[in-house]
């Protein structure tokens, strides 16, 4: 069966969805991503959907699931590059993807992830500092 490739970029994973996904392919991606987050200890996941022409409730639900699962595994997921027509349609469909981070493109998504991880990093540093003080 086809699989959507997952690239590793430092502590981030990058997935570019370029095909008209059928439902099983979407489910496989969900499985693969959660496995890869664990094995690669990734801190962030970027899902680039700029070439997706539609997002229906099934794919929408998959994006939501990936975000929640990433969070459980200690990572953050960002969905980037949703096309205007797709966004308008999703809202009309009644799907607002609450709890899913979004960014305009991969670069902005990367900045967003760095901010999240940076914040966490500072937090953990101050945790280390505390007992010494």
């Amino acid at each position: 069966m086809d699989r959507i490739p997952i690239l590793t970029m430092g502590q981030f994973l990058l997935v570019t969805i370029q095909v008209d996904m059928h439902d099983r392919l979407a489910m496989a991606l969900q499985d693969d991503l959660t496995t890869r987050i664990t094995t690669s200890r990734a801190k962030g996941v970027l899902i680039d959907i700029s070439s997706l022409e539609i997002v229906d409730s099934f794919i929408g639900r998959m994006l939501g699931n990936i975000s929640s699962m990433a969070r459980v595994l200690g990572a953050e997921a960002v969905v980037v590059g949703m096309q205007p027509a797709v966004a308008i349609t999703l809202v009309e469909l009644g799907l607002s993807l609450d709890g899913v981070h979004t960014a305009l493109d991969v670069e902005k998504g990367m900045q967003l992830l760095r901010r999240y991880i940076g914040a966490e990093f500072e937090e953990s540093l101050s945790d280390v500092d505390d007992p010494e003080n």
Binding site: P84, T89, L93
Partner: peptide, 12 residues
């Protein structure tokens, strides 16, 4: 936008 809407509805 209209294309996207009817394709999405049809997919559902």
């Amino acid at each position: 936008v209209d294309q996207t809407k009817i394709v999405t509805a049809a997919s559902e």
